[in-house]
Simulated scan of single mutants.
Amino acid sequence: MTGESAAVLAAGVVLWRTAPAGVEIALIHRPRYDDWSLPKGKLKRGEQFADAAVRETREETGLGCDLGAVLPATRYLVDGRPKEVRYWAARAHAGDFVANTEVDAMVWLPPTAAHHRLTHDRDRPLITALLLTLA
């Protein structure tokens, strides 16, 4: 496979926490794309998917996390190249969000609100998959 057609590999999480009314899910806003999405990013050379998921979560949200169940991967094209993103359920822990050039906002929302706020349809089934793992 040539470098041009090789899939872009990325990892991400559905970041969650408990709240008085139940579970809340973190969504991030990326000004470059003007979208609401889940924390994710490309693997660095030689990096494992799980390590990338934890690193990207810290970089984009400022929060540490504990990876839980594996969630479905998403596959789609970006500028004609295939992209594969592997996801985990991830319980949030210590840290604080600080806006930066890559991510300018983060919100915690109940699952239904998070489902509606997500920009990309491909991300919505991940909310359902998370809830099934927590049931």
Rank of each mutant, 00 (worst) to 15 (best):
H116R: 12
A53K: 02
R58H: 07
R55T: 01
A94K: 05
E84G: 02
K42Y: 09
T128S: 07
W36F: 02
W36H: 06
R122L: 04
L38W: 07
K42L: 14
D121I: 04
T128C: 04
Y76G: 02
D123L: 15
G68Y: 02
C65P: 00
G41H: 07
V54T: 12
T112S: 07
T57E: 10
A105V: 03
H29I: 04
P125Y: 05
D66T: 14
V78W: 05
T119N: 03
G46L: 09
V103K: 08
R75P: 03
I28T: 11
Y76A: 08
T18D: 14
A113E: 15
G22L: 02
A90C: 03
V70F: 02
W108N: 09
V107E: 11
R30S: 14
L38M: 06
E56A: 03
A114V: 00
A69C: 00
H120Q: 14
A69V: 08
H29S: 06
W108I: 12
A92H: 08
D66K: 14
R32Y: 14
L38Y: 03
R124C: 00
V78C: 01
G64Y: 13
T128F: 07
P39E: 05
P110T: 09
L27P: 06
R117E: 10
L63H: 15
R117A: 05
L67S: 05
R91H: 11
I28S: 07
R30N: 10
T112W: 11
H120K: 10
N100F: 08
G22W: 02
R91G: 05
R124Q: 00
V85D: 04
D121K: 11
A90D: 00
A90I: 01
Y33T: 12
R81S: 03
A52C: 12
R86H: 10
A114S: 08
S37A: 11
A50E: 15
T74D: 13
Y33G: 04
A50C: 04
L67Y: 05
E47T: 06
E60H: 15
R45H: 14
G95P: 06
C65Q: 00
H29L: 03
V54N: 00
A19V: 03
P111W: 07
A89W: 07
E59A: 05
E60Q: 15
D79L: 08
D66P: 04
W108V: 11
G41W: 01
A105F: 14
D104M: 14
T128L: 13
V78G: 02
A21L: 13
L77C: 00
A94G: 15
K40Y: 09
R91F: 11
F97H: 02
I127K: 07
A99M: 07
G64I: 05
R32E: 14
E84T: 14
T119V: 03
A52F: 03
Q48D: 15
E84D: 13
K44L: 13
A92L: 04
D104C: 01
R117C: 09
H120R: 12
D123G: 10
P111N: 12
V78D: 05
K42P: 12
L130Q: 10
R81Y: 01
A26I: 06
P125R: 06
A94H: 13
P31M: 06
A105Y: 12
L126Y: 02
H116L: 09
Y76T: 05
T61S: 02
L43R: 08
G41N: 04
A53H: 03
D96M: 10
L126C: 04
Y87G: 06
L43W: 03
R75W: 10
I25R: 05
V107W: 13
